[in-house]
């Protein structure tokens, strides 16, 4: 069981909380100790909008341990509208084809169990096709 590390990362995972650099205002996700843009110390939390587009993607039918029951699943690099790329599964595709450039939005979903079905459920960000325009 890896309870401490899942607990430590809950903010990032549940709500896509990264950082904004206090020195150069660069938006950072995942959070880092040092800003990749200006090398200043990075520490100010910043909640990303969760909107972005598919930068690249693939489909996994043989998941590694912990993801066997999720397979087959689509995994993507998503370019967030604030700039950073994030690695995440696409969900709620419902057979919809995926393309580079497809607009997606963040949702919080079950990622896996920590260990077997007795372990804690790890929740985190995934992305889905943007919902139809609101009437």
């Amino acid at each position: 069981m890896e309870i401490p590390r899942h607990w430590r990362l809950k903010q990032q995972r549940y709500a896509l909380v990264g950082e904004v650099c206090p020195h150069c205002e660069g938006k950072i996700f995942p959070p880092r100790d040092v800003c990749p843009h200006c090398s200043g110390e990075a520490k100010t939390p910043y909640a990303f909008s969760g909107r972005g587009e598919v930068y690249s993607y693939t489909r996994i039918s043989d998941g590694p341990a912990g993801f066997e029951e999720s397979a087959p699943y689509t995994i993507a690099l998503v370019k967030l509208e604030e700039g950073p790329l994030v690695t995440a599964q696409l969900t709620d595709l419902g057979g919809q084809p995926v393309d580079i450039g497809m607009p997606v939005e963040m949702v919080t979903r079950r990622i896996r169990s920590d260990g077997d079905e007795r372990g804690m459920i790890v929740y985190g960000y995934k992305f889905r096709p943007v919902m139809a325009a609101q009437a």
Partner: peptide, 9 residues
């Protein structure tokens, strides 16, 4: 629900 959803999500 999809396989990754529950009451929490």
């Amino acid at each position: 629900t999809g396989p990754d959803e529950d009451v929490i999500t």
